[in-house]
Write a protein that binds this DNA or RNA. Structure first.
Length: 271
DNA sequence: CCCGGAACCTGAAGGC
DNA sequence: TGCCTTCAGGTTCCGG
């Protein structure tokens, strides 16, 4: 599942192939992927335009188009991936959209489950405006995290994955961060001590940076733009490790549901 | 405002 | 072998 480290990896790896390139064609194999705009409007606003910057905000990928200053925005949701292939390549299975560039590269937006979306907007904030702070930016401090958690009584696991509170953390990295900080996923956000918040803040940054360093986690349906897999999941200590020994105490990793989401943790190490 | 649960989707996995 | 049910989770929407 693409979360912040996966989308950051995709951004880093597509940038050299996309930056400064002109879009020569847009093809939708499933029109629902761009349901917020008509096909005609999407094509007329994208074809002929040059991609002059590529950025990430939370789990969104943002391409800024030259000439009209509009933004082409992707969200891969749970099962999406972007593959870059030569124009002559066969269309990969589950391709929902194809964007052709004038350097001969095709961007294949694959998405078996059809959750992914494409938007074209005048201002990127129309899509990303409600997102919380970027957890890897300097402005995201322990005090910032403390303010976010104060007065919130929901389980800390659910708060960490709420994109309006902090942008980019999903199910896998929330579990890893809580394990690294030694905090039980069902603790109320407001119950965390100052010390626990400091540990959690540090853990969030560490697990996300490790994820980026290992080019993302390929648990299911995540591929880098060249089709290869990331290796971050090999470093996971609890996420998707049900029944395996906790690397600290050796006890079995357990799985519970928190807000309907599978949550992996060590009941001995996380209080 | 805050919280929790259903819905959107379809491939994979498990039960019988 | 094969049909059926259940599960997976990022985000949005809706109800309490």
């Amino acid at each position: 599942m693409p979360e912040l480290p996966e989308v950051e990896t995709i951004k880093n790896e597509i940038t050299p192939h996309l930056l400064g390139q002109r879009i020569t064609d847009v093809n939708l194999l499933w029109e629902g992927i761009a349901r917020h705009i008509s096909l005609e409007e999407l094509c007329s606003n994208a074809i002929g335009k040059v991609i002059n910057s590529i950025s990430r905000r939370g789990k969104y990928l943002i391409l800024k188009l030259d000439n009209n200053g509009k933004f082409l925005i992707f969200h891969l949701k749970m099962s999406g991936s972007l593959l870059l292939r030569p124009a002559s390549a066969e269309i990969p299975k589950y391709t929902r959209a194809i964007i052709q560039l004038d350097n001969g590269t095709k961007i294949f937006f694959r998405d078996p489950r059809k959750f992914g979306r494409i938007w074209l907007v005048d201002k990127s904030e129309e899509i990303t405006g409600e997102l919380g702070p970027e957890p890897l930016e300097n402005s995201f401090t322990p005090e910032c995290l403390a303010q976010i958690l104060a007065k919130r009584h929901g389980p800390i696991k659910a708060l960490l994955t709420d994109q309006t509170l902090i942008a980019g953390i999903g199910n896998m990295y929330a579990d890893e961060a809580l394990f690294a900080a030694g905090i039980h996923p069902l603790r109320a956000g407001s119950s965390l001590t100052e010390n626990e918040i400091k540990r959690l803040h540090r853990a969030i940054q560490q697990v996300l940076e490790a994820g980026i360093y290992h080019k993302g986690a390929s648990i299911v349906n995540y591929y880098r733009p060249d089709g290869s897999e990331g290796t971050a999941h090999n470093e996971f200590k609890v996420a998707h490790q049900r029944g395996k020994p906790c690397p600290v105490c050796g006890g079995p990793v357990e799985r519970i549901l928190v807000r309907g989401r599978g949550t992996y943790f060590c009941p001995k190490c996380q209080k």
